[in-house]
Design a protein around this nucleic acid. Structure first.
Lengths: 295, 295
DNA sequence: GTCTACCCATTCAAAATTGAATATCAATGC
DNA sequence: GCATTGATATTCAATTTTGAATGGGTAGAC
């Protein structure tokens, strides 16, 4: 019997998920003509039409939908093989991908990675700064630093620490506008807040204080922009205590005010735990992040 | 992240199961250099040694063993996709592979298929004559005619009939050596029997008659050779009643002797049941084989 | 010993695959 | 209305992949 080209399935899944040849090509680092050919070749081989070719892109037909589950299962197996391989590599040298929140990736990891480079020059590092919990199953990353307890199966997680949050502002701002003495003073101040994300609003609500988003003079959903806005003296914000204590231009406010703490977890896939390289980086990260959270 | 070529996994499984590049190449209808390259390319991509290259062939390393399960799972998904495709094809024309026992494939199917060709000229047929129960899961065949009840999951089976076995011999032989009147007379006769297969020996044992294989003057494990040996007058044998009744040169003996009947089943894979082509052939086969078993 | 039957690696010309470039179309913003 | 963006199809030169042929090795039969 005639075997078909398994790569066609890989392309099929990518196009189905991306919704267009071009987008799928970007994700697979392939090219649009290639994926187009793959899809039609698969259709010919199977004798079934999988996509409706529209102006806006490729849309699955009913037949295509019927194939997608199995095709995805195939990809999962391929991913699992890739992880298995990493778990069995014997060399320490190579690349490790780490995903972490924007704040951690921007302000904490660079110096940690510099120190890692001194002791392990053979290890290259790729940092994915993202607040979305990336997919360890599909190996978007080898190691994830997350602010929520990972729940997925086959994920090994170690809790690093609880990162206390504190209220803070730039000294320049406080010199100008005065230092709040009690929590209610905050409402007289300029606040830096999130835009669509309503963590802070809910935090206030938790203390019985109703604020709406217009209370915040400076709003952004980008955590790095948020922190830089605080540093630049736009007003009062909330940040990890360790971040504040490392920045001489920003000072804590109302240190007695009880705020929730952010748990920090280090996660990696079960299959990959015996890779000396990933192990090394994970252990190093764990120790350094623990030190960071204490300082 | 970098995706590897999924076809390498296909080759890996084939080589692992075949035990050598050359044998795997034969099964995949590929070539030995290609598979050799695939395997080493996969090893490089994964950074893991999968095979021990020996004089006699390729043998899995421990690492290779660790990968095999997942890789097989991947192949199963690929096979499932192929079946799904067949189940969704809309055209009746095309090829159908049928596996059946040597006897059925040799003496029964050809005339049935000739009749099928008259009403469905667009359907091509491939017959796999084999007593091994071929693998419908891996699509070694689309339809299987089997003499045992299929047990695998996802297999749809219809029982066609019970084929009675009878004792028989060529008239030329019986004219020469006389016709047995009772079961014990058989021991005075030349018998045609199996070689390593001891079905017949056990059949005798079932009647309390101990015979050893040297009782059989003509021995073969090939069922077709067996039947031709009976037809040619080598002695007394056992065969499906329908076969005997269709052959003017062979006559039944001791028709009252109680012998076990062979159940005949038609099996196909669940995924494939809606293919008009396979459906058509299966229905046709069912009716014709039922008629055969009655005649 | 020799012969045969298996293997595997390597070579190299032919065949297949790829992607940059291009033409085209539809929707959207100004 | 026109420019822009983002999509697909097509073309074609360059790259990659393939497999027939070859050489060489080893085990087993005779």
């Amino acid at each position: 019997m005639t075997e078909f080209d398994w790569n066609l399935i890989r392309s099929f899944v990518a196009v189905a998920e991306a919704g267009s040849l071009s987008e799928a090509a970007r994700r697979l680092s392939s090219s649009q003509p290639t994926l187009g050919r793959h899809v039609t070749e698969l259709e010919v081989a199977l004798g079934v039409v999988l996509f409706r070719r529209g102006r806006g892109g490729y849309e699955l037909t009913e037949n295509g939908v019927a194939f997608l589950d199995r095709a995805k299962a195939m990809r999962e197996n391929a991913d699992a093989l890739a992880r298995l391989a990493i778990g069995r590599e014997e060399t320490v040298a190579g690349t490790v991908r780490i995903t972490a929140s924007e704040i951690i990736a921007t302000y904490v990891l660079p110096s940690i990675m510099a120190r890692l480079g001194e002791s392990e020059p053979g290890i290259e590092v790729e940092i994915v700064a993202s607040n979305q919990v990336g997919n360890l199953l599909r190996r978007d990353a080898d190691i994830a630093i997350r602010m929520v307890a990972p729940a997925q199966d086959d994920i090994i997680a170690r809790k690093i620490a609880d990162l206390p949050l504190i209220c803070c502002a730039a000294s320049s701002y406080l010199d100008r506008r005065g230092r709040p003495r009690q929590a209610t003073d905050l409402l007289e101040h300029d606040l830096v807040g999130f835009d669509r994300d309503d963590d802070i609003v809910q935090g206030f609500a938790h203390f019985g204080v109703e604020v709406d988003r217009h209370k915040f003079r400076f709003r952004t959903d980008n955590q790095v922009v948020f922190w830089e806005a605080v540093r630049a003296g736009n007003g009062i914000g909330f940040a990890q205590a360790s971040l504040v204590s490392r920045d001489p231009g920003v000072e804590p406010i109302l240190p007695e005010m009880p705020l929730p703490a952010l748990p920090m977890w280090l996660a990696m896939h079960h299959d990959v735990r015996h890779s000396p390289r990933i192990r090394r980086v994970a252990d190093f990260l764990f120790a350094e992040l623990k030190a960071y959270s204490a300082g």
